[in-house]
């Protein structure tokens, strides 16, 4: 008797409150899971922890991009450097994995080059989990456009992000920066990145890119300012180390 009565009361209660419930944040039918973290994501979904699932997705993406790259079987070989570069000096790619260590003898070589084919899809999966989380999309778009020299993929990621959060102006700024990069106008890229780095959510990688562009353009004082900012504010030890080395190189 108690169970059916309780159920009936709950039906009434849920009926009244269902009118007040907020909409489903993302289309769950369109949700795609990363193969490696599907079980963990499903568990966290069941616990009502989508944000946590997206955080773990970010950590996984950072570890993927931060680790040495292994060539996947059947993967297309990477085009040699220069075939797609636009003269900024940071479009260099490496056939045999990411140049995760900065080479002071060759500052034109990027910090974080390589192929990393899953970077874009990983960022998109994080957006599926939490459409308001802009950092992974900005990070992946920045890395794809400026470090890995695949601006088209960067634009796909940004387009995917904008569809989920159309009001986020950061994405529009990044699209403009990627566009300027494709046109091969370093001054245009610098102008846009100067606005982008003012955002507290801006990935350190983008700040580093701006510092490098200043350095390449001979704007030493501005480059020093950016590297000092990285040194003071960044929580990423690899970029802090890189900034230290660049500051030494700039005699600052």
């Amino acid at each position: 008797m108690a169970l059916p009565l309780g159920c009936v009361l709950c039906v009434l209660l849920n009926g009244v409150f269902s009118l007040r419930r907020p909409p489903v944040p993302a289309d769950p039918v369109g949700l795609q899971l990363e193969e490696s973290g599907a079980l963990e994501t499903a568990f966290l979904f069941g616990m009502g922890m989508r944000r946590l699932a997206s955080d773990l997705g970010l950590i996984r993406m950072l570890l993927y991009y931060g680790g040495a790259e292994e060539e996947m079987p059947g993967e297309a070989p990477v085009e040699p450097a220069g075939s797609q570069a636009h003269g900024h000096g940071h479009g260099h790619e490496h056939r045999h994995g990411r140049s995760s260590h900065y080479d002071p003898g060759h500052p034109e070589r990027p910090f974080g080059g390589g192929r990393y084919p899953r970077l874009g899809p990983m960022a998109m999966r994080i957006l599926d989990l939490d459409p308001s989380y802009s950092y992974p999309a900005l990070f992946a778009a920045g890395a794809l456009a400026f470090n890995l020299n695949r601006p088209q993929e960067a634009l796909w990621v940004l387009d995917y992000a904008m569809k989920r959060d159309p009001g986020n102006l950061r994405y529009h700024q990044y699209v403009a920066a990627v566009g300027a990069h494709r046109k091969g106008t370093p001054k245009g890229v610098i102008g846009i990145l100067e606005t982008v780095v003012l955002d507290p959510e801006c990935p350190t990688m983008i700040k580093n890119m701006l510092g490098f562009l200043y350095f390449k353009n001979g704007q030493k004082a501005k480059a020093i300012r950016v590297y000092r900012q990285i040194l003071e504010e960044s929580r990423d030890p690899s970029y802090r180390g890189l900034a230290e080395r660049m500051l030494r190189r700039l005699d600052a």
């Binding site: 709950c10 849920n14 907020p22 944040p25 944000r51 939490d130 308001s132 159309p166």
Partner: peptide, 19 residues
């Protein structure tokens, strides 16, 4: 679905930065 509690209703923890 009409009997179980709608726990997503209280789940602000998961929507801290929603657009």
């Amino acid at each position: 679905s009409w009997v179980i509690p709608d726990l997503q209703l209280f789940n602000l923890r998961d929507k801290l930065d929603l657009p």
